[in-house]
Simulated assay, not measured.
Amino acid sequence: MTTILLLLLVAYLLGSIPSGLWIGHYFFHKNLRDFGSGNIGTTNTFRILGKKAGTIVFAMDLLKGTLATVLPLIFGIETISPALFGLFAVLGHTFSIFNHFQGGKAVATAAGMLLGYSPKFILLLVIVFFITFYLTSMVSFASVLSAGVAAILLLVLPAFHLIFTSYDWLFTSVVLFIVCFIIVRHRDNITRIRNKTENIFNFGLNITHQKHNI
Rank of each mutant, 00 (worst) to 15 (best):
F58W: 10
I40Y: 07
L73G: 12
D34I: 02
P18A: 00
G92E: 09
S140G: 11
N31A: 08
I23E: 06
W22P: 11
K64Q: 01
Y134M: 12
L145C: 03
G92T: 07
L115S: 03
L49M: 04
L21I: 04
I40R: 10
G38L: 14
Y117Q: 07
K51C: 01
F28N: 06
F46I: 11
S81V: 07
I40W: 12
F28E: 06
T42P: 15
G20E: 00
L21V: 03
L32S: 05
A150M: 02
L135S: 03
M138V: 00
S143K: 05
F35N: 00
F130A: 03
G50P: 15
T132I: 11
G36Q: 05
T66D: 10
Y26N: 02
V70N: 15
G65F: 11
I77P: 15
F141C: 03
L135A: 11
I56M: 11
T42M: 14
T42W: 10
T43I: 14
A106G: 04
G65H: 13
E78D: 15
F35L: 08
G148C: 05
K120D: 00
Y26T: 04
L67V: 14
S118A: 12
V144Q: 05
L21T: 01
G148Q: 10
L32Q: 06
I97W: 11
L84A: 06
R47H: 07
A106Y: 00
A151H: 05
L155S: 06
L91S: 03
M60H: 07
F121P: 15
T136N: 07
T79D: 04
F98H: 01
P18M: 00
W22F: 12
N44A: 09
V90G: 10
F129E: 08
V128N: 13
A111T: 05
L32F: 01
T94K: 04
I127V: 15
G24I: 01
S96F: 06
H93L: 02
G148E: 02
I122W: 11
L49I: 09
E78G: 15
V107Q: 09
Y117V: 03
R47L: 10
L63T: 10
L32E: 08
V139L: 13
W22T: 02
S37Y: 06
F121Y: 12
I122F: 07
R33W: 01
P119L: 12
L21W: 05
P119W: 06
K52D: 03
G148A: 03
T43M: 13
W22R: 01
L87D: 10
L123I: 13
G65D: 13
N31R: 14
P18C: 05
H93F: 04
F85I: 11
F58C: 04
G76E: 14
V70E: 14
V128E: 09
L124F: 12
F101Y: 03
F98T: 00
